[in-house]
Design a binder for these strands. Sequence first.
DNA 1: CGAGCTCTTGATTCTCGTCAAGAAGGGTGG
DNA 2: CCACCCTTCTTGACGAGAATCAAGAGCTCG
Lengths: 253, 253
Amino acid sequence: MTSLFSERPAIFPENCFFAAEGGDPPVCQICRARGSGVCSVLSPEELSALYQVSERISFPPGHIFIEEGTDAWCFYNVTQGTVKLFRSLPDGRRQITGFGSPGCFIGLAVTETYGFGAETVEAVTLCRFSRKKLETLVNRFPQLERRLLNEASHELVLAQDQMLLLGRKTARERVASFLLTRIAADDCEHTQDSIVLHLPMTRADIADYLGLTIETVSRTLSRMRQDGLIRTGADRMIEIRSRERLRTLSLEG
Amino acid sequence: MTSLFSERPAIFPENCFFAAEGGDPPVCQICRARGSGVCSVLSPEELSALYQVSERISFPPGHIFIEEGTDAWCFYNVTQGTVKLFRSLPDGRRQITGFGSPGCFIGLAVTETYGFGAETVEAVTLCRFSRKKLETLVNRFPQLERRLLNEASHELVLAQDQMLLLGRKTARERVASFLLTRIAADDCEHTQDSIVLHLPMTRADIADYLGLTIETVSRTLSRMRQDGLIRTGADRMIEIRSRERLRTLSLEG
DNA sequence: CGAGCTCTTGATTCTCGTCAAGAAGGGTGG
DNA sequence: CCACCCTTCTTGACGAGAATCAAGAGCTCG
């Protein structure tokens, strides 16, 4: 039996095919989430059962697939692309509570209704499970429940990081923290001393995630560019020129 | 089998003795957390097993009983009083991520080490479980694991609320939201049209929870007092004179 | 009754938001 | 392949809201 909290599988996107086994359902064999999603704790036979109660769906960029406050009938697993999860106020102000990459399980923070909304950032593929059927499977395969608890525990740690950021950090610290988070989320290529990062989200998304405005995000990035900390390229590419300086910046302005 | 997420027992502090049964260990029979804590899903026999691997400890106000980043050897259940959970930056800035009342389980957001610190607000009594022994019990009583998942799920919802508050609300909206949260947390006496609330925490705690300064919290409460929304009394008592106006205020300044 | 907190209030500063305009980038159709 | 349009991004000027600095009032508790 694995540990009660936070023993999440390591994410190796480049090795993802290693995680899938010959006995897995065909779609799962090539799935980017097989090594890191909740399904990673299932044997090929168990995975088949999960596979049978799920369906693969795809959405274009900017598609809202969970509307805040609607009945929570299904859960999702991101298998390709990036999604954003958010909460909003009646007047339209929006806070993005997190971005989801392949392997991310969506639906931990629900009651009878979704307490959050979800929208695609890029073209996205999801694995969708009906809530009822997933619950049946969780009862059959207890390791799924353990895995969900680990996931929830990890989400809580991230949420607390974000609360510290939103409540106590300056704009400069927030943007630096964000870039470091993105590096950890591993959408990036490491070369020897610099790191090239692709941000799939717009400035508006970053602003809504960091509790800032578009203009402040843009200005802060410009200043980092002037300071030689980063370089920006086409198609939302960012080159981090000193991860160490960025880390310092993320903690003390 | 209960639902996978968020079926947390209702909290009835005034009825707490109803939840305890004659077969419970003596301390548990009079425990304020018996009806709402993780132990609420256990039968008297199961509770005895949990009781045997736990110990009751008390701390004075202002005592830090979890130091950020230290090894996570044990989990806690609050049984009396209020605690604050926080994260901090190297330069001393601090964000309180939540307050814990009786029934609150502490330790969901851990890995090998505590990702957060915990300090008592008032005199506090806790039930302490060694991590290893609790894990053994969770394996024995699967409903405990389900209960922990529900708890984590609920914590996530609260964390997302708080992110929205910290990222997008004004000082006035934050303080209004805070008071409403406190009413829901049920440290209060309802009379017919007004609600009398006791806040155990200082202005500094409130400020650290809301991402503001002491002065701003104080000024905001003063303004609410001038506006006839609240009245303040000795010993951190606050009378809410219009819950409805407060709710409006919490959403749109 | 006095010491040390906690809380309130005022004056001032500063960070970030708002408003506005223009540049850059991406996609589409001729 | 280029012109055009729309969205995204950048930059500047200005203003508002909250932080900071400072002083004093109000509570608690020994």
